[in-house]
């Protein structure tokens, strides 16, 4: 089968978004809508550009795109209102007999 390659290995923009990095981490952030003030601190610091303050009807709070979140915990650590908690993914919750 013939594949296509670009001249000189030139790449099109934003192809990285095909790569879902959401399964990298052991933890994931959970936003407490009540505590979130939509200050966007988490949004500014997220290295994976996957937490954004969005409007949900009347409400406005940070929402995580779990397709990409690597679970680093920066959003939780920088949140001035302690509105983001890191939780262990279920898959890592196992008991050692």
């Amino acid at each position: 089968m013939k594949i296509k390659i670009n001249l000189g290995a030139i790449s099109e923009p934003m192809q990285s978004e095909k790569l879902k990095t959401g399964d990298w981490g052991t933890h994931y952030p959970v936003v407490d809508k009540e505590k979130c003030t939509a200050c966007k601190t988490c949004e500014q610091y997220c290295p994976d550009l996957c937490i954004e303050v969005e409007e949900f009807g009347e409400e406005k709070y940070a929402a995580v795109d779990y397709n990409y979140c690597k679970g680093c915990g920066i959003c939780s650590s920088v949140c001035p209102f302690e509105a983001i908690k890191m939780e262990l993914k279920d898959i890592f919750k196992f008991e050692v007999c």
């Binding site: 594949i3 390659i5 001249l7 000189g8 290995a9 030139i10 790449s11 099109e12 923009p13």
Partner: peptide
Amino acid sequence: AYMTTRKPLAFGCYAPPHIYMEF
């Protein structure tokens, strides 16, 4: 092809073994 903000291409990308040889 050239660098322009109108069509933001990336030049000088690296290629892992599955695609290097073709270039």
